[in-house]
Structure formats: structure tokens, C-alpha cells
Amino acid sequence: MTTVATRTRPALAFFDVDETVIAAKSMIAFWDHWMRRHPAWAAARAPWSDAGAAAPVDRAELNRRHYRRYAGVPLATLQAAGRLWYDGYRRGEAAFVRPVVDAVAAHWAAGCEVVLVSGSMRPLLTPLARDVGASTILCTELVVGADGVLTGEVHRPMIGDAKAEAAVGLMRERGVDAGKCFAYGDHESDLALLRSVGKPVVVGDSPLLHEAAQRYGWPVTPARPGPLRADSP
């Protein structure tokens, strides 16, 4: 009898980005960067705020509202601005979550496909993905008109359940066992993503995620800030 070796498909390692891989909220940090360089544009739009007026607004709706601020911006302009912002951001001595950056490198070295899953936008995530070795980005995708200009709308906010659904879809597409895949997240909105894999890791001190970690025996890693490279001066 002839035995045919079955090629093992690499596991996927999913990483939330804001306050998980990087120490900041990229959308807010970039908006501050954008306002400094486009003051007239920014003055016509409300400043960023997570605070609701009379009633709480869900994070997906906040995500949509934020991206409407960029209506009328050429995508190429936003991409260039994203690269410029990240080039400066990455140099910070406390810009990244060091234990998670180490985990990204370890998964990459072990042959896992590293995937960024974020409510942030691709113009900010593409340079980060290149820096850390992520091959796939699942994010809030901006709607771009035929003229290459942003409409201000998005296809779907990559928030909450959307992260889990995107991760499950990618695992099925890659033909990998979810039980062998990893996910890292810091916020309660990452809970569905963490539950979608067999090896979730809680980052930071979210009470809800710590409760889930204690209940299910998930590991917890500190959100200790540091530079991108551990050997940076």
C-alpha cells in the first residue's frame, strides 16, 4: 500500500491592531496627523469623539461616522498620508505593544500566516503589515468612486461580529482547522474573534475579557508598550 503524505496547511494567527499590536488607536492618531496638515479641511468636520450625545452609539456606527470625514479625499492622497503618518509613528519608543509584537514574530517564524483584523483602514494598515510580516489585512474597506475619490462610506465596519465572520471565512478559504488557529484582542468587541479560534489570547486588562479568560482558561498577556524592535536604543 502506498501512503501519500498530506501537506499540513499553516495555521492562521489573527491580530487586532489598535491597542493590541500598536499602543495607540490608529484612527485617532492619524486623524490628529491629518488635521495638522489639512487644517481647513479638518475645521469643517467635528473632532473625533467616542462620546455619544444623548445615548450611546454602537462602535460600528461610530466607525462609519468617522470615515465620512474623509469624503472627497482622493484615495491616493490618503494612502500617501497613511504612509507618512506610520513612518513617523513606528519610531516611537512606546508605539507598540511589545509582548504582542514578539508574538507576531514568533508566529511568523513558526510558519503561521499572520493576519491583521481591524476597524482601521487599509491606508494605515498596509505599512504596518509590511513591517510586521502580516500577509493579509481584514479591515474596514473604504468605498471609492470611479474617479478614485472616497465617497465617505464604507462597505462594512470591521467591528465586533464582523471580525469573527471575516476570520471564519478566511479559515475556510485557506482550509485550515480553526482549533489550531490563534487570535489576539484587547477589547470586549474582540470577544467574537477570540471565540472563533481554538487558541485565543487576551491582551491587556479588559475586565470582560479577563472574565472570559478565567472561565475558559485563555492566556493573558500584558499590554506593555515599547518600540517596534526589542533591541532599539
Rank of each mutant, 00 (worst) to 15 (best):
V114D: 08
V114C: 10
V115T: 09
V115G: 11
L116Q: 08
L116D: 04
L116W: 12
V117P: 04
V117E: 04
S118R: 00
S118P: 04
S118I: 00
G119F: 00
S120G: 15
S120R: 07
S120M: 04
S120N: 08
M121Y: 09
M121K: 05
M121R: 05
R122V: 14
R122P: 08
R122I: 07
R122L: 14
L124D: 02
L124S: 03
L125C: 10
L125Y: 02
P127W: 03
P127C: 11
A129L: 09
R130Y: 12
D131E: 15
V132D: 06
V132W: 05
V132C: 14
G133T: 02
A134R: 06
A134L: 08
S135V: 09
T136S: 09
I137T: 09
I137R: 13
I137H: 11
L138Y: 06
L138E: 05
L138R: 10
C139W: 05
T140W: 00
T140L: 02
T140E: 03
T140H: 03
T140M: 07
E141R: 14
L142Y: 03
G145D: 13
G145W: 06
G145Q: 12
A146C: 03
A146H: 10
D147P: 11
G148S: 13
V149T: 15
V149P: 08
V149S: 11
V149F: 11
L150S: 10
T151W: 04
E153L: 09
E153Y: 01
V154W: 01
H155I: 07
H155E: 12
R156W: 06
R156L: 14
R156V: 10
P157K: 00
I159K: 00
I159T: 06
G160E: 11
G160I: 01
D161E: 15
D161W: 11
D161S: 11
D161V: 14
D161Y: 08
A164V: 00
A164L: 00
A164D: 01
E165L: 05
E165D: 09
A167P: 02
A167D: 02
A167M: 02
L170S: 02
L170H: 03
L170C: 02
M171W: 04
R172H: 13
E173H: 14
E173V: 03
